[in-house]
């Protein structure tokens, strides 16, 4: 799991997906796939600003997605927020997947890792409080109301 999170995008790949995205942006129609590819590449960047941009794109995708793709976006939102060290948000997104698919082992491993990280940083108390409020999966807005915003 840590390997997936620590994996950094090849700068050439990022450039490639960015180019494709910008081309469609200029043409006035961005396909879901192009946006997703670019978002995924961004969230694997070394740079916080790229990751944040990726989060924005994923949130947009989430709004338009069906149940299956929404699960994917939640997973990447969880990873991206983890990389931004916003562990509370990461945990919320992760739990939203588990709410729908309680036995999703990718989400289970992710949850375990986030909890370990939070325990290490003394944040776990807050997470438990936050967790109660975070189970409803009704869209980003519902997931977004944080009990206490993570330090970011």
């Amino acid at each position: 799991m840590e390997e997936v999170i620590n994996d950094i995008v090849d700068p050439e790949d990022l450039k490639k997906f960015e180019k494709k995205y910008n081309k469609e942006l200029v043409a006035g129609h961005i396909t879901t796939n192009t946006q997703f590819e670019y978002a995924w590449a961004l969230t694997r960047s070394k740079y916080g600003n790229d990751i944040k941009k990726g989060v924005g794109l994923l949130e947009e995708l989430f709004q338009q997605g069906d149940e299956q793709t929404q699960r994917d976006y939640l997973y990447y939102l969880s990873i991206a927020n983890f990389r931004l060290k916003d562990y509370e948000k990461a945990l919320k997104y992760c739990r939203a997947i588990l709410h729908v698919e309680p036995r999703n082992h990718q989400a289970m491993e992710m949850e375990k890792l986030i909890k370990e990280k939070m325990a290490k940083e003394g944040l776990l108390g807050m997470a438990i409080v936050g967790g109660v409020a975070a189970v409803a999966l009704g869209g980003i807005a519902a997931l977004g109301f944080a009990v206490s915003k993570g330090k970011s």
Binding site: E3, I5, N6, I8, S45, Y47, G48, N49, R83, K85
Partner: peptide, 11 residues
């Protein structure tokens, strides 16, 4: 073990 830095991102 990992080519990238351990903490994941340099943000």
């Amino acid at each position: 073990d990992q080519p990238a830095n351990k903490e994941g991102c340099a943000c």
